[in-house]
């Protein structure tokens, strides 16, 4: 076998190895991206499990000259609900209705029940506290407030 042929074979092997390394890196990057997305999903859950309070779900919408805030207080004792609205923050607190939570979550409540709910929500723009209207619709607290024009 001539030296030239041997050199060519070595070059081919080097090229193939390089292509394999690139392919491996691409596959590794693909799976890393995928798993990163999955891990991130659970960060919030781990954070909420280590918190003293259960945080109510919230939906905050900017609707024209108004801010509309919907807070779901399912699982909170109605008579203990306390809502405080500031210029740019809303705080909601209340005691957990253990019976209701147990009934809904069945066995899972052992891991999930916390003695109180608390949510602190930052508003997307400042509001006029004198314009705040709070009402309850089913398990939702509905808060409407006029925006302060900047």
């Amino acid at each position: 076998m001539s030296d030239e042929l041997f050199d060519e074979m070595l070059r081919d092997i080097a090229k193939t190895l390089k292509r394999m390394r690139m392919l491996r890196d691409e596959i590794e990057a693909y799976f890393t991206r995928m798993m990163f997305g999955v891990e991130e999903l659970y960060e919030d859950r781990l954070r909420s499990m280590s918190s003293e309070f259960e945080e109510p779900l919230v939906e905050i919408r900017d609707v024209g000259d108004e801010i509309l805030v919907l807070i779901d207080v399912s699982g909170v004792k109605e008579e203990t609900i306390d809502v405080r609205v500031g210029e740019d923050t809303i705080v909601v607190m209340g005691e957990t209705d253990i019976r209701k939570v147990e009934e809904a979550l069945r066995g899972w409540h052992l891991a999930r029940t916390k003695r109180a709910y608390k949510g602190v929500y930052r508003l997307p723009s400042k509001i006029d506290p004198s314009s705040v209207v709070v009402e309850k619709k089913g398990s939702l607290i509905v808060i409407r407030a006029r925006k302060i024009s900047s």
Binding site: L41, Y42, R45, L57, S74, G75, A104, L105, G138, S139
Partner: peptide
């Protein structure tokens, strides 16, 4: 209301 309690974590995710 029961459903909302059960689905709270799924909604957050």
């Amino acid at each position: 209301e029961k459903l909302k309690l059960r689905l709270k974590e799924l909604m957050k995710e």
